[in-house]
């Protein structure tokens, strides 16, 4: 047998795709899979969270209680109690034991924290001029509790977090980044959620006070003040002009009376000694 010297043919054992092309294809596949899982897990998380019993929510609330450190305000808690007492007997609000915490932050905002805590930022209290305005803000947050919006967003955020944990592991920077982005208690609500909470708030305000006075006062002031540095509430909530229009439409369609508000003699939430 004759031996013929021949160079090895390298063409069969190595791929002929450029590694970056392969990376792009695999990355695109991963992105499509991630989006699919994100949507499915987000939907499942939201579905489950919206049906979470209040007792379990309290357990969750005890674990996130330190997120908004502040002073408990018995005055504001009293207002919440009065609002809850006037809500219909079937309302899920009766299952909660609400507390109101005043957080020393300049943002004009309030947050519904799982477990029945309403965190009100100092900036909002400084803006409030009447008890009716405070009732409106608190009733708006109660609306988020009644519709379980605060849990829906948390449940939706669980999707990408679980995905990150599965793909990258527990001690990975990617998982941590995703968790920081998605598991925030200050999650933004959708436009519809905010509008529904506003409608809920007007109804509750009228049930408690007998009239809708003060429902739009705070938003009016914010809209007028909105300069180059928009307060936080403007960034995370729908435009105040839209909210005012929708709230006034609600008041008009239900025929709610609007009477003068009761002004606050001192900035809300501050103890009398100050």
């Amino acid at each position: 047998m004759k031996f013929t010297a021949r160079l090895p043919d390298g063409s069969v054992n190595v791929p002929h795709t450029h590694p970056l092309v392969e990376l792009a294809w695999l990355g695109a596949g991963l992105a499509v899979a991630a989006v699919a899982v994100f949507v499915v897990l987000g939907w499942a998380g939201e579905y489950a969270a919206a049906r979470l019993p209040v007792a379990y929510e309290d357990w969750l609330g005890a674990r996130v209680a330190g997120t908004f450190p502040g002073q408990e305000s018995p005055g504001l808690a009293g207002r919440v109690e009065r609002l809850v007492a006037t809500s219909p007997p079937g309302s899920p609000l009766h299952a909660y034991r609400f507390r109101v915490v005043v957080v020393d932050r300049p943002d004009v905002n309030a947050v519904a924290v799982p477990g029945g805590t309403i965190a009100v930022f100092r900036g909002l209290l400084d803006q409030a001029r009447s008890g009716n305005e405070l009732d409106m803000v608190l009733a708006h947050e109660l609306g988020h509790f009644a519709h379980r919006d605060h849990l829906r967003n948390l449940g939706r955020g669980l999707g990408p977090v679980v995905l990150g944990l599965v793909l990258f592991g527990r001690d990975s920077a990617v998982s941590e980044l995703v968790a920081n982005l998605c598991l925030t208690l200050e999650a933004r609500y959708s436009r519809e959620q905010e509008a529904a909470a506003d409608r809920f708030a007007v109804d509750l305000l009228v049930a408690a006070n007998g009239h809708a006075g003060g429902a739009v006062d705070l938003f009016r002031r914010l809209a007028a003040e909105a300069g180059p540095s928009l307060p936080y509430v403007l960034a995370s909530h729908p435009h105040p002009a839209d909210r005012i229009r929708q709230i006034e439409a609600r008041i008009a369609s239900r025929g709610y009376p609007v009477r003068p508000t009761e002004p606050l003699d001192r900035p809300a939430g501050r103890p009398p000694s100050e």
Binding site: N13, V14, P15, P19, E22, L26, L30
Partner: peptide, 14 residues
């Protein structure tokens, strides 16, 4: 990434 989808692991073949 290839482990997720299966197929020819070109990166290791070379």
């Amino acid at each position: 990434l290839r482990n997720l989808f299966g197929g020819r692991v070109g990166a290791y073949e070379t």
